[in-house]
Design a protein around this nucleic acid. Structure first.
Lengths: 100, 100
DNA sequence: ACATCAATTCGATGGTTGTCGAAATATCAA
DNA sequence: TTGATATTTCGACAACCATCGAATTGATGT
């Protein structure tokens, strides 16, 4: 089953990390931007539309990555980010089964 | 269309309030408990299974209510809580359309 | 009226977090 | 090598937040 969707099981800690990652408006905007793009999103391109210092951006990217919501790949002096939609889907499924 | 599901539109502020409300483990447990019960859930019954002071519980309930995730109804000296599933559904729909 | 119980409010405390400037690290181009 | 650019790390600060004891409010039953 090559293209079957993997169902990820989230630990309690991951659940909290994800919820907290989504709870900051700026981080949410960043993730939204990464998610809508199919291609790689470099750190620097984020600063074109979000007014933020490099240090703060780096901090937020680490939070998103620790939560598992994005994956990073180094490309020379740039760092590209990719959305990890299976994690978000697992989160949505979990909320639905726990709370709906 | 008598039983049609209402689609609620969430503001940016509500989005943040909900995310923050879900980001605390204890609050998540409380909401989970309220959600799995169909009947009214009094404040005091929460303390049977969650070790928490009355003051902290009251604080968390207010957060959940401000986020719109629960509704409260006074019943004598008790306060009953009801899950507001349409708000949770609106939140899930929003995450899906923004991030998936 | 009084005592009792549920819940809220107040005030304080300790920990967390978003923010950014400055310095450091890493890569690339000339 | 030197300079420029991208990103991270460090240190600090202010704001926020979870927590709870104590005092308060509100309702019930005696």
């Amino acid at each position: 089953m090559a293209t079957a969707a993997q169902t990820v099981e989230l630990t309690e800690d991951q659940l909290t990390l994800i919820a907290r990652a989504l709870a900051d408006p700026r981080r949410y905007e960043i993730l939204k931007k990464i998610s809508t793009k199919r291609c790689a999103t470099p750190c620097s391109s984020m600063r074109d539309c979000i007014d933020i210092s490099p240090a703060t951006l780096s901090h937020h990217m680490k939070e998103l990555e620790t939560a598992g919501l994005v994956r990073s790949e180094k490309d020379g002096k740039f760092v590209n980010y990719f959305p990890q939609t299976q994690i978000l889907r697992a989160y949505l499924d979990r909320l639905k089964s726990d709370l709906a």
